[in-house]
Write a protein that binds this DNA or RNA. Structure first.
Length: 745
DNA sequence: CCCCCGTCAGCTGGT
DNA sequence: CTGACGGGGG
């Protein structure tokens, strides 16, 4: 093996050990900015240089974006100069060898699951032509079911059932069991809904996102020969963001790892931010127990952020209890301490952030190196308005992606329905435009007839006069399909079904306000979809399914990646990225931490990790801010500074203006209690983290004062105070709920 | 069947 | 303030 390649010579000793790790399980604990991706890429390249067939390496990531980046970097290292064209080919290299360089398979759990099911799904009764239902499709199915079963949608909205069904699949239990363990009272109904949902998906020939993980597990467990075959292909396994795997993903990982020559899991429990979706850092924390003989390597040098930023991030995350203590060594000294600014309202906050961004750009920072992070998508609007005002270009990431646009969804519905005429959800959508004079009533009649006669719904539907042209065109289209490329097939379909003509006519219509303009945009979106389809090779159903799958799974490819614009995104979206300058807005209780997390210490810790993730994205500067008043549902409410600000050692924080909330002790900055008006809450009454000492602690560790001896305790519940003596600061009375402190013997 | 309009409830987060 | 839904008329 040649280790003279720069991809190896630039590694630090820990990274090098991870790259050279030979066989067996390896847990790579990779803190923020520790060169994780670089290590993974180098490891893959190292394996290939050592003669491991590229196609026997499987690398699983969480997002398409991460997979794409890794693909690019591996491709670049393997075949310099051919970079991005290979990137696309790589995406599909698992199924058939492309004519280019042999490359490893890199993709998301969901994409991998889809490939497995395409190939072997028949073993569990799944058609290889299945389509994938996304959250929206799922929602529509559930709505229909709830109506049919006469479930009160007000009390039990479709989203609740979606959550329940997802949870059941994730945990590998029945929907009844999931309802029971979630404390639902309507367990039987939940079971009925679950059953009806399953039936609807089977009828439509569809699987949902969770199925893409659950069904492969079922498959590999139930078919030993398939397991053997898959294992013979996957010799080296890598799983990124291992702290965020859910139950089903952990099972799938274990099944694959069980037969692999090497298994490298990479993660950082301090960046686990998907607990709400069933993710758990447990598989990571229990790694050595689950994989006996596992090696553990820590990457503890942070190459990204200035020391000043890391000191604040480190102080913050150390307030979390459920974590393993670890060292993070800054490779980049100095830097500016993150500042906290308080503004009158969200508009003022947004304007100042925009102005500061403008200053950064004038100072030579590229717009692409500036990011604004917020907790919820709704916060973006104020920032957008302010940026537009100053004519600063920006891109939203992950908000409404291209594939969620109405027209794109229309087009995709046509495609799904043409492949599966029993797909009720897609049919309902496509009947909205152009109008065909068929609605809910007619559809239900046909469905009823089908049930009576014991025929598939589509047969009864074909008898509806207004739908006859659609059905006969479909027959024609299916005949032609084997000869058509995905782009041709899509175009022929939308043309023949009358969608394209209707859309063009609507776009041409004299711009009556929003109607005409909106349609023009829709047409442009459909054209863009054609362009995407053109990048897909092959012909017939296979090519089309591949295209469809990409469109459904690629939620995070909103485009605009190259544009010279400031990036706006949620904190969840920020993971894995880095910027020179980062703005973190809305540091208010109820927002960050979010109101839905306030009553659980466990959830609060996840929110704290979210802020930690945000802070550690910054290379040079981070600016934190909050608004004292925020507009919610049309009216302004007073806010309370985020409790996390009080986690940050006062000595580390730089304050930017005089409008800070009154510190409890003058001169101590953010070390004191929150301001006294904590009854005025953004989202109702908060419940503070239970910082109640357990047993009879005699000592306390305070973020600013350090270790102190407890002299007395007074007050109850929310008012509980500890009086403790600290080495330097002397006697202090501290409101327990206000500061995260550690109590011990 | 479809469109319009008034009413009402709602904002985590993502594949 | 925005989007979803239900009722009523064309």
């Amino acid at each position: 093996m040649r280790l003279s390649d720069p991809i190896f010579t630039t590694l630090d000793p820990d990274q090098r050990r991870a790259v050279l790790h030979d066989a067996g399980p390896l847990l790579l604990v990779a803190g923020a900015g520790s060169g994780k991706t670089r290590a993974i890429v180098a490891r893959i390249v190292r394996l290939i240089r050592d003669g491991v067939p590229a196609r026997s390496i499987l690398g699983i990531t969480f997002t398409n974006r991460a997979a794409g980046e890794m693909r690019e970097r591996v491709a670049k290292a393997l075949a310099p100069g051919v970079e991005s064209s290979i990137g696309d080919v790589l995406a599909r290299s698992f199924d058939r060898a492309p004519g280019t360089t042999e490359v490893p398979w890199l993709g998301t759990f969901h994409a991998f699951g889809a490939i497995l099911l395409r190939r072997h799904g028949g073993r569990i009764g799944l058609s290889p032509r299945f389509v994938i239902y996304d959250a929206r499709d799922q929602h529509d199915v559930l709505k229909r079911i709830l109506k049919e079963l006469n479930v009160d949608e007000k009390k039990f909205p479709p989203t609740k059932f979606a959550w329940l069904i997802e949870r059941a699949k994730r945990d590998g239990v029945s929907v009844e069991q999931a309802a029971l363990s979630a404390g639902w009272r309507v367990v039987t109904t939940a079971g009925q809904v679950g059953k009806a949902y399953d039936d609807a998906l089977v009828e439509a020939g569809a699987v949902d996102f969770t199925d893409l993980i659950r069904l492969p597990v079922t498959l590999l467990r139930g078919a030993p020969d398939v397991l053997t075959e898959v294992r013979s292909e996957v010799r080296h396994l890598l799983v990124d963001e291992f702290q965020d795997v859910d139950g089903a993903q952990a099972e799938l990982t274990a099944l694959l790892a069980g037969g692999a020559d090497s298994f490298c899991a990479v993660g950082d429990e301090d960046q686990s931010i998907y607990g709400w979706r069933g993710a758990s850092a447990e598989p990571m924390l229990l790694f050595e127990r689950r994989f006996p003989g596992a090696k553990v390597i820590h990457l503890s040098t942070n190459y990204r952020s200035r020391a000043a930023i890391l000191s604040v991030a480190g102080a913050l995350i150390s307030k979390n209890r459920s974590r393993r203590e670890k060292t993070i060594l800054p490779a980049r000294e100095g830097g500016e301490l993150p500042a906290v600014a308080v503004y009158a309202d969200q508009e003022a906050e947004a304007q100042e952030v925009a102005a500061a961004a403008a200053r950064e750009i004038r100072g030579g920072v590229a717009p692409t190196e500036i990011a604004v992070f917020y907790r919820v998508n709704a916060q973006s609007r104020a920032i957008e308005d302010a940026l537009r005002m100053l004519r600063i270009p920006y891109v939203l990431r992950g908000a409404l992606s291209f594939y969620e646009r109405a027209a794109v969804r229309d087009a995709v519905s046509y495609l799904k329905w043409f492949l599966h005429p029993d797909d009720a959800v897609s049919l309902k959508r496509l009947l909205k435009f152009p109008r065909r004079g068929v609605g809910e009533v007619t559809l239900n009649k046909a469905r009823e007839a089908a049930r009576r006669e014991g025929i598939p719904p589509s047969e009864a539907l074909a008898r509806i006069p207004n739908l006859a042209p659609l059905f006969s065109f479909r027959t024609l289209w299916l005949e032609e399909l084997p000869q058509m490329s995905p782009a041709e097939a899509l175009h022929a379909l939308l043309k023949g079904a009358g969608y394209l003509d209707a859309l063009e006519a609507a776009a041409r219509e004299p711009g009556e306000g929003r109607e005409g303009a909106g349609r023009e945009e829709d047409l442009e979106h459909v054209r863009e979809l054609f362009r995407v389809a053109e990048t897909f090779p092959g012909a017939g159903e296979d090519g089309l399914l591949e295209f469809l799958e990409k469109v459904t799974l690629a939620a995070d490819e909103a485009g605009g990646e190259e544009s010279e614009a400031v990036r706006l995104m949620t904190l969840h979206n920020a993971k894995g990225l880095e910027f020179d300058v980062v703005f973190l807005v809305g540091l208010e209780d109820g927002l960050l931490p979010h109101s839905r997390s306030l009553d659980s210490p466990h959830d609060i810790e996840e929110e704290r990790r979210l802020l930690y993730v945000g802070l550690t994205r910054a290379r040079e500067r981070a600016f934190l801010s909050l608004a004292r008043r925020r507009n919610l549902f049309g009216s302004y409410r007073e806010t309370v500074p985020s409790r996390f600000l009080y986690d940050l050692p006062a000595s580390l924080m730089r304050r930017t203006d005089g409008a800070l909330p009154e510190p409890a002790r003058p001169g101590k900055g953010f070390s004191g209690a929150p301001p006294p008006d904590h009854r005025m809450r953004l989202y109702g009454e908060p419940r503070y983290e239970d910082a109640e000492p357990s047993g009879r602690p005699r000592k306390v560790r305070h973020p600013v004062f350090g270790e102190g001896k407890i002299e007395a305790v007074e007050g109850e519940g929310n008012d509980r105070k500890v009086i403790a003596r600290f080495p330097v600061y002397g006697l202090k009375k501290i409101l327990v709920r206000a500061v995260t402190m550690e109590f011990f013997e």
